[in-house]
Structures are given as structure tokens and as C-alpha cells.
Design a protein around this nucleic acid. Sequence first.
DNA 1: TTGAAAGCGCTAACAA
DNA 2: TTGTTAGCGCTTTCAA
Lengths: 344, 344
Amino acid sequence: MPRTTIADVAQAAGVSVSTVSRALRGLDRVSPETRERIEQEAKRLHFSFSKSASSLASGKTMRVAVLLPNEISSWFNAHAFEGIYEVMSKAGYDIVPYIVWTQDDLDAFFQNLPGNRNVDAVIEASFDFDEAKKQVLGNLTIPVVGMNAPSTHGLDAGVAIDDEASMATIVRFLKSLGHKTLAYIEQPINTTPFVCSDRLRKKGFSEASQACGYADEDIIVMPSLSHIDARSEQDIYSGIVAQLLSAPKQPTAICVSVDAVAAPLLKELRRMGWRVPQDVSLVGFDDDDTATALDLTTMHQDPAEIGRIAARKTLALLNGETLDEPFTVMPTSLVLRGTTERVS
Amino acid sequence: MPRTTIADVAQAAGVSVSTVSRALRGLDRVSPETRERIEQEAKRLHFSFSKSASSLASGKTMRVAVLLPNEISSWFNAHAFEGIYEVMSKAGYDIVPYIVWTQDDLDAFFQNLPGNRNVDAVIEASFDFDEAKKQVLGNLTIPVVGMNAPSTHGLDAGVAIDDEASMATIVRFLKSLGHKTLAYIEQPINTTPFVCSDRLRKKGFSEASQACGYADEDIIVMPSLSHIDARSEQDIYSGIVAQLLSAPKQPTAICVSVDAVAAPLLKELRRMGWRVPQDVSLVGFDDDDTATALDLTTMHQDPAEIGRIAARKTLALLNGETLDEPFTVMPTSLVLRGTTERVS
DNA sequence: TTGAAAGCGCTAACAA
DNA sequence: TTGTTAGCGCTTTCAA
């Protein structure tokens, strides 16, 4: 199956290549009859444009890069990517993921990005860029749109939830249930140096609990393990539960930075004989699939919609429009399920 | 930031473009000193190749298409994609997903695919192609690799688990636990016309239960709902549980076609007063995140590894190698957790 | 070891 | 309404 070019179609239809180009791209200045004929020949010959040739000639790649931290299979990334795909693909764009694990990956991305036009735009998720990178982004001539980015600096547009405010909502909710001692558990293993939400949520928790009048001794914060020793997940979580049990004041409610922490924690709590929610309440963050499965009270966000909105902004920017609201904040909502209870 | 071209680098380094091209691609026939100089200039100017220009000139796009059914956020797809990404990106390839929801999407993909070289290879997940499409794939000059494909026809290589055999393992396991009546629940809402695993697993269940000596009245199979009425997920699942409860013989064990079915089913079973595993055992398939969260006994498969292997085969094919084992079968393993019990 | 030159398949003026 | 003509930025013979 030799590849058919626009010239083949032109010859078959008895017209010039530029006419074919115009016809097939739906431009005007082509008579209905010629267009019809060209379209038929194109179909018959299974013609489709070579993207490479088109982009080389036009300067537009019809591709957008999606920069994702750590993995595409994480709940947030996968759904955000899907939302982006949904709208960008309809507009004719290919979307190319770039997954960043290490600082080196990120540096490489930035080293190559500015120099050449391999994509028309970049959409980025959750990165906490350093100043140098924000500079680079800011100098880019292509649109850069952020999802759940901690700052607007260097971005042309963005969509994000308010992590701090959402966490504060959780704290106030727990206070209203009468909880006297709160614990906050970060992701115990956090290998990502450039992602922001954990930090913001922790900040939100700390500030809100102070604002709600909790004294220092009524707040237990368990940070990420700085270096990962060879312990199993089970060991890590039983360690956490042990610390909770042996705290001067045992917490009556536990917040976690993401739902993913809730499942193993819940299992350990129950294994240690704590009943949830009777002995201790547990609140997650994200509302992913495991949250539903575990009947976990949690803070809901909609990453697919975040992706869609980011993509729509990108599209608008690509069309040269000016956004009247470049940065939008998405609402979150507390989903009440079975792991929280009023303190009796 | 104007885009730097290979000509800029050539000028800066005082050599010709072809020398720069050779040097930067690591080819020989370049003296160490010139190479050094060129590399420095390239870095200084933030040069990187225009993929479009390279592919136009070389005929290689350095891109592979990944054809995915329905969504990229599903557990299998996301992890398989990640596995592919991991190995292809290291080899310098961009990987671009094509997500197919409708038959039209699929047709469009096939209409465009053969005619032109926009990708160097395609990796495909779980599609049950019709004969015409298999033809098209077979005639393609680029490698086509399948993941969990039901047939090898039209593919140059593939990786898959044995859905039927895995399901048979589950049936034998339940028999060995003394279960006398088995139920099989398909995904109640299945909007995908072109995906295969459901069908294979059901077949595996039916054949194995016969082979194990279960009589027809000891087998309850609940197929997908053919048309989706407006019922909520809860209603659907309580309907299923109601049917199970009112069956002539109540099942002592339930198999589901995928873990995703297990979570809502489990919830409904418990709501209706069935204790799992005391009153009824439940076995999933896939071992996704909810399986862990729910402590579900299930059949484990590793989609990321499937993706990696598919990618490695693709790479080998791209390098013109002949695979000594084009089609490989991946092992699955039964993970015993808390939702199964011996019948007393 | 290096360079000149001819495309790759298309788009975008411009001319007809 | 259509065709002609330059490129787009690279790779790839082929000469030097």
C-alpha cells in the first residue's frame, strides 16, 4: 500500500494540488463540482494528509503537549487527560502526553520546548515550577495552560480547584461534628519534587484548624516520609496508626491529603481495632473510585471537567481569542458518606 | 523566541547543515572536535529538531499510535498506556492516543490510517475487529501490535492474557471450596461494541462450569442489559441482587466479569443482608485499585507489563527484527483475599 | 571528514 | 475559480 499524496489525488481528479488542498480543508474558492470530485477521489485512494508535511508548510503542528507528573494512570491525570482529549480531538488536534518522573525529565522537556515548534500549545498539570521554568514558559510564544497549578505565573490561562479552601471546609465540617482532636496524614511516600497539591492541602488544614480554634496539642500532622526505607506499605501504615494510637491525645477525626491514603489507612485502623466511624472519623480528598468503593466521606473534584475547560481555553488561545477569564477556579464539594460521624 | 533551525546551528558552528544533522543524531563521519563544537552551539541556541521536518525528510515519524477503546482513564487502558509510554519514550518515540468511542470513530481511524504515514506503528487494545478491518490491518506496511486482542489475525505481534483459562481457574477454585451454585454477572452496562474480554470471560465461565460438572440449574448467568433505561446504578444492582435472591437456587458464589462490577454489587449484597463471604463468595477479575480497597478475591493481571511487552515488540519490529515469539500469553494469578470462603 | 543539492508532501502567496 | 511557484526544516545521496 504505497502512500498516496495530495499529488495523486490531484492527478486523479484532474486538478492542481493547491485546489485539492483547498477542497479537502474545506476552504472556499472551490466550485462544488470540483470539490465533490476531489472528495470522491480522495476517499477512493484512502488519502489523508501527511501531518508532517502540513505542519512544515503551515507552521501549525495541530498537536498539543500535555505535561503530566509521575504517571498518566493516576486518577487525576487520567481523567484530566481524558477531558483534554475529548475537546482537543474534536478540534482536530493530536494530543501528545509527556510524562515527567524526574527533575531530569522536566529539564529535558524545557530544554527542547522553546527552541522549536513541535507542538502548538502545552497544557500542564499540577506542576510547581521554579522561577527559571516559569521564565521559560512566560517567554514561550505558544499558549501554556495550567491545571491545578499553584501559581498563574508563566501561564496564559488555567483551571484549578482551591485546595486550601477545600481543606478548610473539611476542617470546619469536622469541627461542626464536634471533633476535638484532628489528625492530618500526608501521602507517606511522596517521590515527586514538583507537584503542589499536597503542600497546599496541608497548609489549608493547618491554617483552618488554627482558625477554628484548635490548640496545637489537638492537631497531629503526619508528614511524608522523607527517605523511603524498604518497609512495605502495610508496615508504613501500621506505623502511622501506631503513632496515632500512642499520641498524647488520640484523634477523633483523621484527614488525609488524598483518597489513595485512605484505603490502606482504613484497613490498618480496623485491623488495630478502631471502628470507623464510631471510634474515629475519616475524610478523604478527591473522590476517586476507591472512595466510592469504601463509602468514604471525601472532597469531590472533577478532573475530567478541569481537563475540558483547560482544553477549551487552549483552543480559544490558539484561535487568537482573548479570554475574559483566563484563570478559573472550579468548585469542589464535600461528599458525605459512611466514614464520618458526629462525636457523641 | 524565534525558532532556531539547523541552519542557525550550522552557521554558528561554521559548518554545513548536513554536518550538523549528522553530529546531532550521533552518526559517525564527524570529527570529535566539530561534533563538540556543534553540540555546544546547539545547546546554547536551545536547538531541537523539528519533528515535522525530520519525518518529512526521512519518512519516519517517530510516533506511534495507541488505539484505545472508550477511555484512557479505565484501569486497564491507563496502565497499558503507561507501560507503552515507558518503553517507547525511552526509544525517542512520541506516543499519541486515539480513543475510540463509537463505530464511527473506529471507521474514521481506519479510513485515514492506511493512506498515509502519520505514525510508524500502531498498538491496539482489546479490539474485536471485523474482517474488513483485519484486512486493512494486515495490508498495512507498518507494524500493528495487539494487547489482549481476541485474535492474532491482522496483527504482527501481540500480548494477551488468557481470559478463558483464567475464568476457568476461578470456577475450579470455587468448586474446590465446595460451592454448589455459581452466578456470573457481566458488566450490566456495556456500551462498547468492539471490545472482547467480556465475551471471552463469559465463555470461559460457561465452559468451565460445565466441565466441572455443574448442572444447568446450578449456573446463573446475568448478561449485560441490552438497552439502557434510565435507571440509576443503584437500581440496576439492586435489581441484580433481587434476581439472585429470587433464583430457584441461590448462588453460593458469584463471579463478575470485571472488578468494577464487584464494588456496587458488594454494597447491594450487604444492603440486602447478605454477608460476604459468609453467605456468598465473590470473585472479581483484574485486580484493580478497588479490589485492593475492598479486599476482593480476584484474578490478577498486569496491564502495565502488557503495555511494556507490546512496546518492546513494536520496537523490535520497527528495527526490522523478526520476533521469535510474536504472540505471547501473559500469566494471570488468583489473589486470595477476603470475599471468598469455603462452603461449610 | 565535510558540503552541495535534491527532494519529502504540503501550504500560501500570487498570477492567471 | 484555478494553477504556479516558492519555500517550510530537515535527511540523504553523491561529490569533493
